[in-house]
Design a protein around this nucleic acid. Structure first.
Lengths: 140, 140
DNA sequence: TTTCTCAGTTGATAATGTCAATTGAGGTTT
DNA sequence: AAACCTCAATTGACATTATCAACTGAGAAA
């Protein structure tokens, strides 16, 4: 039986958040976990928009709107008009944003490495696969 | 590489929380995810105290104190003196609390079942094992 | 022109997480 | 006994994250 599976997950996420948060603050990047997640999304997805982030992160669009506004204020991203959709805005990283992402990627890599210590590539791969299956099962 | 592993986890937890939350509200139990986690802790651990929950859930003791107060106000638990430690309080489920836990266990089981659909017992077991390794790696 | 559409925005509020200071009953020291 | 110490629990203040509903407004459709 999958006893306490959920509780284990809660704890893992909690630890991961703390870890990332500490790493970020130590690098003098005044960003939250939410900002980080959004930035990574923007970096990863070409022609990214608020709506896309919202779907990718399973978060309410209002929260995304606020995160984006903050990232824009901080000078990490810019909003460009989308030629294909007048209502949508393309989110683009500024130079500063790219630098931030670089720092984040490094920190994130260290954290991931620390987190997955003792697991083989295959096990990590499987793990990720299981996570995806479970997510699909819930948010179909 | 463990790319986006963290993002997948965030999404999974988010979906899981929504699922449980919906299930709980539909059962007219006005409890939050935090309440649920604490109740399950109290049920699972004999002679449970606030401090123990705090450690098990990796949450700040202040948050636990508030959750416990709410559970007590709602009549789900009682605080009994701990004969072994005058400062600590044993948390005990009331009859009402036991009923709530029963309901929760059912809902939780359904959610877990839905979530792990398509995975074998072995895979679920492995998954949980990986989660534990990663948690230990981070919160050593 | 008027109406409609819909990505994004804003407001209000709830839930969760964090840090620091305080409480207070019982043990320890002098 | 009085002053001091310990430490689980509590409280206060605040930051972060999440949710829901109402609103905007520029262009498409009628």
């Amino acid at each position: 039986m999958s006893l306490n599976l959920d509780e284990s997950l809660h704890r893992l996420i909690h630890c991961y958040k703390s870890e990332i948060k500490n790493a970020i603050t130590e690098s003098n990047l005044s960003l939250h976990v939410g900002h980080i997640r959004a930035l990574k999304c923007i970096q990863r997805i070409p022609n990214c928009s608020a709506q896309i982030i919202s779907k990718k992160m399973n978060l309410d669009k209002s929260q995304i709107a606020r995160i984006i506004k903050e990232l824009q204020t901080k000078g990490h991203i810019e909003k460009h008009p989308n030629p294909d959709n007048h209502r949508s805005q393309l989110l683009v990283l500024t130079e500063q944003g790219k630098q931030a992402i670089d720092t984040i990627t490094t920190l994130d890599g260290e954290t991931s490495l620390k987190m997955t210590n003792g697991l083989t590539e295959q096990q990590i791969h499987d793990f990720k696969h299981y996570v995806e299956i479970m997510t699909k099962n819930l948010c179909a």
